[in-house]
Simulated scan of single mutants.
Amino acid sequence: MWRMPAESAPHERTWMAFPREGITLGVGAEFREQGYRAWTDVAHAVQQFEPVTMVVDPTEMARARRMLSADIEIVEAPLDEFWMRDVGPTFVVDPDRPGVLGAVDWIFNGWGAPDWAEWQKSAGIARVVAEHAGAERVDSLLVAEGGGLHVDGTGTVLLTETVQLDPRRNPFADRTRVEAEMARTIGATDAIWLSRGLTRDYDDLGTNGHVDIVATFASPEHVLIHEQTDASHPDFEVSRLVRSELETAFAERGRSVAITGIPAPSALRDDEGWLDWSYINHLVTNDGVVLCGFGDDAADARAREIIAQAYPGRRVITVDSRPIFDRGGGIHCITQQQPRV
Protein backbone atom coordinates (compact mmCIF):
# COMPACT_ATOMS: atom_id res chain seq x y z
CA MET A 1 0.00 0.00 0.00
CA TRP A 2 1.39 3.38 -0.97
CA ARG A 3 2.04 5.95 1.75
CA MET A 4 3.16 9.57 1.59
CA PRO A 5 5.82 10.19 4.25
CA ALA A 6 5.75 13.32 6.37
CA GLU A 7 7.71 16.18 4.87
CA SER A 8 10.08 15.96 7.85
CA ALA A 9 11.11 12.41 6.87
CA PRO A 10 14.50 12.05 5.09
CA HIS A 11 14.66 13.32 1.52
CA GLU A 12 16.60 12.06 -1.47
CA ARG A 13 16.29 15.46 -3.12
CA THR A 14 13.98 18.39 -3.83
CA TRP A 15 12.46 19.04 -7.26
CA MET A 16 11.77 22.49 -8.68
CA ALA A 17 10.86 24.04 -12.05
CA PHE A 18 12.63 27.09 -13.44
CA PRO A 19 10.45 30.08 -14.43
CA ARG A 20 9.73 30.75 -18.07
CA GLU A 21 8.24 33.77 -19.79
CA GLY A 22 4.47 33.92 -19.74
CA ILE A 23 1.50 35.03 -17.68
CA THR A 24 2.83 33.84 -14.32
CA LEU A 25 6.32 35.31 -14.66
CA GLY A 26 4.76 38.64 -15.61
CA VAL A 27 5.45 41.69 -17.72
CA GLY A 28 8.53 43.89 -17.73
CA ALA A 29 12.20 42.97 -17.59
CA GLU A 30 12.70 44.08 -13.98
CA PHE A 31 9.62 42.25 -12.71
CA ARG A 32 10.54 39.07 -14.58
CA GLU A 33 14.09 39.23 -13.23
CA GLN A 34 12.70 39.34 -9.67
CA GLY A 35 10.92 36.07 -10.39
CA TYR A 36 13.97 34.34 -11.84
CA ARG A 37 16.04 35.51 -8.87
CA ALA A 38 13.52 34.38 -6.24
CA TRP A 39 13.26 30.85 -7.67
CA THR A 40 17.05 30.70 -7.92
CA ASP A 41 17.52 31.91 -4.33
CA VAL A 42 15.18 29.20 -3.05
CA ALA A 43 17.05 26.53 -5.03
CA HIS A 44 20.38 27.61 -3.57
CA ALA A 45 18.92 27.70 -0.05
CA VAL A 46 17.52 24.17 -0.39
CA GLN A 47 20.82 23.00 -1.86
CA GLN A 48 22.51 23.74 1.47
CA PHE A 49 20.63 20.76 2.90
CA GLU A 50 20.00 18.33 0.03
CA PRO A 51 20.38 17.89 -3.75
CA VAL A 52 18.14 19.92 -6.04
CA THR A 53 16.90 18.93 -9.49
CA MET A 54 15.45 21.71 -11.66
CA VAL A 55 13.15 21.09 -14.62
CA VAL A 56 13.85 23.74 -17.26
CA ASP A 57 11.91 24.62 -20.39
CA PRO A 58 14.09 24.60 -23.55
CA THR A 59 13.58 28.37 -23.93
CA GLU A 60 15.21 29.01 -20.55
CA MET A 61 18.17 26.63 -20.61
CA ALA A 62 20.82 29.30 -21.15
CA ARG A 63 19.49 31.49 -18.36
CA ALA A 64 19.13 28.55 -15.97
CA ARG A 65 22.71 27.41 -16.55
CA ARG A 66 23.91 30.97 -15.99
CA MET A 67 21.96 31.58 -12.76
CA LEU A 68 22.02 28.16 -11.08
CA SER A 69 24.90 26.56 -9.24
CA ALA A 70 26.65 23.86 -11.25
CA ASP A 71 25.73 21.43 -8.47
CA ILE A 72 22.03 21.74 -9.29
CA GLU A 73 20.93 19.02 -11.72
CA ILE A 74 18.98 20.26 -14.74
CA VAL A 75 16.33 18.23 -16.57
CA GLU A 76 15.15 19.78 -19.82
CA ALA A 77 11.43 19.40 -20.56
CA PRO A 78 8.63 21.57 -22.00
CA LEU A 79 6.60 23.42 -19.37
CA ASP A 80 4.45 26.50 -19.02
CA GLU A 81 3.49 26.69 -15.31
CA PHE A 82 6.42 26.22 -12.92
CA TRP A 83 4.86 25.57 -9.50
CA MET A 84 6.45 22.16 -8.96
CA ARG A 85 4.33 21.34 -5.90
CA ASP A 86 1.27 21.44 -8.12
CA VAL A 87 2.42 20.31 -11.55
CA GLY A 88 4.82 17.63 -10.34
CA PRO A 89 4.05 14.25 -8.78
CA THR A 90 3.39 13.55 -5.14
CA PHE A 91 6.01 11.01 -4.10
CA VAL A 92 5.03 7.96 -2.05
CA VAL A 93 6.70 4.85 -0.67
CA ASP A 94 5.56 1.25 -0.17
CA PRO A 95 6.35 -0.11 3.32
CA ASP A 96 5.97 -3.64 1.97
CA ARG A 97 8.58 -3.05 -0.74
CA PRO A 98 11.62 -1.33 0.75
CA GLY A 99 13.51 0.72 -1.79
CA VAL A 100 10.51 1.25 -4.10
CA LEU A 101 9.51 4.84 -4.89
CA GLY A 102 6.10 5.77 -6.24
CA ALA A 103 4.89 9.00 -7.86
CA VAL A 104 1.22 9.96 -7.85
CA ASP A 105 0.30 11.56 -11.17
CA TRP A 106 -2.73 13.71 -10.38
CA ILE A 107 -4.59 15.39 -13.21
CA PHE A 108 -3.50 19.03 -13.41
CA ASN A 109 -5.80 21.53 -15.12
CA GLY A 110 -4.32 24.84 -14.03
CA TRP A 111 -6.26 25.08 -10.73
CA GLY A 112 -9.65 24.70 -12.35
CA ALA A 113 -8.87 25.62 -15.98
CA PRO A 114 -9.31 29.41 -15.66
CA ASP A 115 -9.25 31.38 -18.90
CA TRP A 116 -5.89 32.99 -18.14
CA ALA A 117 -3.94 29.82 -17.29
CA GLU A 118 -1.35 28.16 -19.52
CA TRP A 119 -1.02 24.65 -18.15
CA GLN A 120 -1.23 22.07 -20.92
CA LYS A 121 2.53 21.49 -21.14
CA SER A 122 3.03 21.27 -17.39
CA ALA A 123 0.20 18.76 -17.14
CA GLY A 124 2.77 16.22 -18.35
CA ILE A 125 5.62 17.19 -16.02
CA ALA A 126 4.67 14.64 -13.34
CA ARG A 127 5.38 11.84 -15.80
CA VAL A 128 8.74 13.37 -16.75
CA VAL A 129 9.76 13.70 -13.11
CA ALA A 130 8.56 10.20 -12.19
CA GLU A 131 10.55 8.64 -15.02
CA HIS A 132 13.70 10.59 -14.18
CA ALA A 133 13.38 9.63 -10.50
CA GLY A 134 12.91 5.96 -11.35
CA ALA A 135 9.51 5.93 -9.64
CA GLU A 136 6.51 3.72 -10.31
CA ARG A 137 3.73 5.95 -11.59
CA VAL A 138 0.49 5.89 -9.62
CA ASP A 139 -2.14 7.28 -11.98
CA SER A 140 -5.11 9.16 -10.56
CA LEU A 141 -8.30 10.46 -12.16
CA LEU A 142 -8.60 13.12 -9.45
CA VAL A 143 -7.80 16.71 -10.39
CA ALA A 144 -5.53 17.72 -7.54
CA GLU A 145 -2.34 19.56 -6.69
CA GLY A 146 0.32 18.89 -4.07
CA GLY A 147 -0.37 22.27 -2.47
CA GLY A 148 -3.92 21.13 -1.77
CA LEU A 149 -2.91 18.51 0.80
CA HIS A 150 -0.68 18.07 3.83
CA VAL A 151 -0.03 14.77 5.65
CA ASP A 152 1.33 13.84 9.06
CA GLY A 153 2.94 10.65 7.75
CA THR A 154 0.79 8.41 9.95
CA GLY A 155 -2.40 8.38 7.89
CA THR A 156 -3.95 11.84 8.34
CA VAL A 157 -4.35 14.36 5.53
CA LEU A 158 -5.50 17.99 5.67
CA LEU A 159 -7.77 19.05 2.80
CA THR A 160 -9.94 22.05 1.91
CA GLU A 161 -13.46 21.69 0.56
CA THR A 162 -13.02 24.51 -1.96
CA VAL A 163 -10.13 22.70 -3.68
CA GLN A 164 -10.89 18.99 -3.81
CA LEU A 165 -14.63 19.57 -4.24
CA ASP A 166 -14.20 22.48 -6.66
CA PRO A 167 -16.65 21.86 -9.54
CA ARG A 168 -14.05 23.27 -11.96
CA ARG A 169 -11.72 20.50 -10.89
CA ASN A 170 -13.86 17.54 -9.86
CA PRO A 171 -17.52 18.21 -10.75
CA PHE A 172 -18.65 14.70 -9.80
CA ALA A 173 -16.60 14.24 -6.62
CA ASP A 174 -17.84 14.15 -3.07
CA ARG A 175 -16.00 13.67 0.22
CA THR A 176 -16.33 9.90 0.11
CA ARG A 177 -14.78 9.60 -3.34
CA VAL A 178 -11.96 12.02 -2.54
CA GLU A 179 -11.17 10.23 0.71
CA ALA A 180 -11.10 6.87 -1.04
CA GLU A 181 -8.64 8.22 -3.60
CA MET A 182 -6.44 9.72 -0.87
CA ALA A 183 -6.33 6.33 0.83
CA ARG A 184 -5.47 4.54 -2.43
CA THR A 185 -2.80 6.93 -3.64
CA ILE A 186 -1.07 8.39 -0.56
CA GLY A 187 -2.22 6.03 2.20
CA ALA A 188 -4.20 8.73 4.04
CA THR A 189 -7.07 6.95 5.76
CA ASP A 190 -8.21 9.92 7.89
CA ALA A 191 -9.12 13.16 6.13
CA ILE A 192 -9.58 16.39 8.07
CA TRP A 193 -11.55 18.86 5.97
CA LEU A 194 -11.16 22.61 6.36
CA SER A 195 -13.86 24.87 4.97
CA ARG A 196 -11.60 27.23 3.07
CA GLY A 197 -8.23 28.88 2.56
CA LEU A 198 -6.98 32.47 2.74
CA THR A 199 -8.88 35.35 1.16
CA ARG A 200 -6.40 36.30 -1.57
CA ASP A 201 -6.34 32.70 -2.77
CA TYR A 202 -9.86 33.17 -4.17
CA ASP A 203 -8.79 35.90 -6.60
CA ASP A 204 -8.64 35.10 -10.33
CA LEU A 205 -4.99 34.05 -10.05
CA GLY A 206 -5.51 32.01 -6.86
CA THR A 207 -5.84 28.29 -6.22
CA ASN A 208 -9.25 28.52 -4.52
CA GLY A 209 -7.97 27.61 -1.08
CA HIS A 210 -4.78 25.52 -0.97
CA VAL A 211 -4.13 24.18 2.50
CA ASP A 212 -0.34 24.61 2.36
CA ILE A 213 -0.64 28.34 2.99
CA VAL A 214 -3.05 27.82 5.90
CA ALA A 215 -1.98 24.83 8.00
CA THR A 216 0.73 22.16 8.15
CA PHE A 217 1.85 19.30 10.37
CA ALA A 218 5.16 19.92 12.12
CA SER A 219 4.61 16.44 13.59
CA PRO A 220 1.58 14.20 14.18
CA GLU A 221 1.19 15.94 17.55
CA HIS A 222 1.73 19.52 16.37
CA VAL A 223 0.01 21.64 13.73
CA LEU A 224 1.13 25.09 12.63
CA ILE A 225 -1.47 27.53 11.31
CA HIS A 226 -1.46 30.97 9.71
CA GLU A 227 -2.59 33.59 12.22
CA GLN A 228 -3.75 36.99 11.05
CA THR A 229 -3.82 39.19 14.15
CA ASP A 230 -5.29 42.35 12.60
CA ALA A 231 -9.06 42.30 12.89
CA SER A 232 -9.44 44.55 9.83
CA HIS A 233 -8.08 41.80 7.56
CA PRO A 234 -10.64 39.18 6.41
CA ASP A 235 -8.12 36.43 7.21
CA PHE A 236 -8.52 37.32 10.88
CA GLU A 237 -11.79 35.39 10.81
CA VAL A 238 -10.36 32.72 8.50
CA SER A 239 -7.56 32.05 11.00
CA ARG A 240 -10.06 31.65 13.82
CA LEU A 241 -12.20 29.33 11.69
CA VAL A 242 -9.23 27.11 10.79
CA ARG A 243 -8.19 26.82 14.44
CA SER A 244 -11.74 25.99 15.51
CA GLU A 245 -12.20 23.34 12.81
CA LEU A 246 -8.89 21.70 13.67
CA GLU A 247 -9.62 21.73 17.40
CA THR A 248 -13.01 20.12 16.77
CA ALA A 249 -11.58 17.51 14.40
CA PHE A 250 -8.83 16.41 16.75
CA ALA A 251 -11.19 16.37 19.73
CA GLU A 252 -13.61 14.13 17.83
CA ARG A 253 -10.74 11.74 17.18
CA GLY A 254 -9.53 11.82 20.76
CA ARG A 255 -6.16 13.17 19.62
CA SER A 256 -4.05 15.57 21.66
CA VAL A 257 -2.56 17.87 19.04
CA ALA A 258 -0.98 21.23 19.81
CA ILE A 259 -1.97 24.05 17.46
CA THR A 260 0.46 26.94 17.13
CA GLY A 261 -0.33 30.09 15.22
CA ILE A 262 2.42 31.91 13.34
CA PRO A 263 1.46 35.61 13.18
CA ALA A 264 1.33 37.16 9.73
CA PRO A 265 3.62 40.07 8.78
CA SER A 266 2.33 43.56 9.55
CA ALA A 267 1.65 44.51 5.92
CA LEU A 268 -2.02 44.03 5.08
CA ARG A 269 -2.55 45.13 1.48
CA ASP A 270 -0.83 45.78 -1.82
CA ASP A 271 -2.10 47.30 -5.07
CA GLU A 272 -4.10 44.13 -5.80
CA GLY A 273 -5.88 43.85 -2.44
CA TRP A 274 -5.51 41.88 0.79
CA LEU A 275 -2.14 40.17 1.21
CA ASP A 276 -1.84 36.47 2.03
CA TRP A 277 1.81 36.52 3.15
CA SER A 278 2.15 33.37 5.22
CA TYR A 279 5.03 31.63 7.00
CA ILE A 280 3.14 28.32 6.82
CA ASN A 281 4.27 27.94 3.20
CA HIS A 282 7.77 26.73 4.13
CA LEU A 283 9.74 23.67 3.03
CA VAL A 284 11.15 21.19 5.55
CA THR A 285 14.45 19.75 4.28
CA ASN A 286 17.11 17.39 5.58
CA ASP A 287 18.40 19.15 8.73
CA GLY A 288 16.80 22.45 7.79
CA VAL A 289 13.75 24.55 7.00
CA VAL A 290 13.58 27.07 4.15
CA LEU A 291 11.20 29.76 5.37
CA CYS A 292 9.45 32.58 3.57
CA GLY A 293 10.63 36.09 4.48
CA PHE A 294 8.75 39.32 3.81
CA GLY A 295 11.13 42.14 4.69
CA ASP A 296 9.42 42.57 8.07
CA ASP A 297 12.32 42.10 10.49
CA ALA A 298 10.23 41.62 13.64
CA ALA A 299 7.68 39.27 12.09
CA ASP A 300 10.33 37.32 10.16
CA ALA A 301 12.40 36.84 13.35
CA ARG A 302 9.34 35.75 15.33
CA ALA A 303 8.45 33.21 12.63
CA ARG A 304 12.02 31.83 12.58
CA GLU A 305 11.85 31.31 16.34
CA ILE A 306 8.52 29.48 16.18
CA ILE A 307 9.68 27.34 13.26
CA ALA A 308 12.96 26.46 15.00
CA GLN A 309 11.03 25.31 18.06
CA ALA A 310 8.58 23.33 15.93
CA TYR A 311 11.37 21.49 14.09
CA PRO A 312 14.07 21.00 16.74
CA GLY A 313 17.57 20.33 15.47
CA ARG A 314 16.95 21.92 12.08
CA ARG A 315 18.61 25.12 10.85
CA VAL A 316 16.14 27.74 9.59
CA ILE A 317 16.99 29.84 6.52
CA THR A 318 14.79 32.75 5.42
CA VAL A 319 14.45 33.65 1.73
CA ASP A 320 12.67 36.81 0.58
CA SER A 321 9.48 35.39 -0.90
CA ARG A 322 7.61 38.55 -1.86
CA PRO A 323 8.31 38.01 -5.58
CA ILE A 324 6.93 34.47 -5.28
CA PHE A 325 3.77 35.64 -3.51
CA ASP A 326 3.38 38.37 -6.14
CA ARG A 327 2.85 35.47 -8.56
CA GLY A 328 0.44 33.51 -6.35
CA GLY A 329 2.36 31.27 -3.96
CA GLY A 330 5.36 30.68 -1.74
CA ILE A 331 8.36 28.45 -1.15
CA HIS A 332 6.35 25.30 -0.52
CA CYS A 333 4.45 25.89 -3.76
CA ILE A 334 7.58 25.87 -5.92
CA THR A 335 9.26 22.80 -4.38
CA GLN A 336 8.47 19.09 -4.10
CA GLN A 337 10.37 16.70 -1.88
CA GLN A 338 11.40 13.24 -3.05
CA PRO A 339 11.59 10.94 0.00
CA ARG A 340 14.57 8.71 0.55
CA VAL A 341 13.82 5.01 0.07
Rank of each mutant, 00 (worst) to 15 (best):
Q120I: 10
R13G: 02
G197S: 09
F172I: 05
V104L: 11
P234G: 04
T216Q: 07
V93C: 04
D86R: 02
I280N: 06
P167G: 00
R13L: 10
I107N: 10
E7N: 06
W193S: 06
K121W: 13
W116T: 05
V87E: 04
A180H: 13
E305V: 05
G134M: 11
G147F: 05
V52E: 15
P58C: 14
S244L: 10
E272T: 14
R184S: 04
G330A: 06
T154N: 12
D271S: 12
I306W: 05
G330M: 09
I280D: 03
D71F: 02
A298N: 13
Q336R: 03
V55K: 00
Q338Y: 06
N281E: 13
A117Y: 10
G146L: 01
V238E: 14
S195T: 09
D230Q: 12
G124I: 02
V93I: 13
G330T: 03
V129R: 04
G102E: 01
E7C: 05
E50G: 12
S232C: 11
P10K: 06
S278A: 08
F108W: 07
W193R: 07
H210Y: 04
P89Q: 04
T216D: 11
G147T: 07
A298M: 08
E247Y: 08
T160L: 10
T199D: 15
M16G: 05
Q228M: 12
S321C: 05
S244N: 15
E179S: 03
A180S: 08
D96E: 15
A113C: 04
D86W: 00
R177D: 09
I125C: 01
A62I: 14
T335V: 08
A117E: 15
E12V: 04
A77G: 08
G28T: 07
H44F: 07
V319D: 03
E118R: 07
T207C: 05
D190S: 10
L158H: 00
D230F: 14
V211L: 12
R340E: 15
Q164A: 15
R314M: 06
T189P: 08
E272Q: 15
A180I: 13
H132T: 12
I125N: 02
A29Y: 07
H282F: 13
I306Q: 04
I74D: 04
E181G: 02
R327D: 08
E221D: 13
P323S: 10
F325V: 03
R243Y: 15
T156W: 01
E227V: 14
F49Y: 09
G153M: 15
L101R: 08
S232N: 07
R340K: 06
R255A: 15
L194T: 02
L165I: 05
I280L: 02
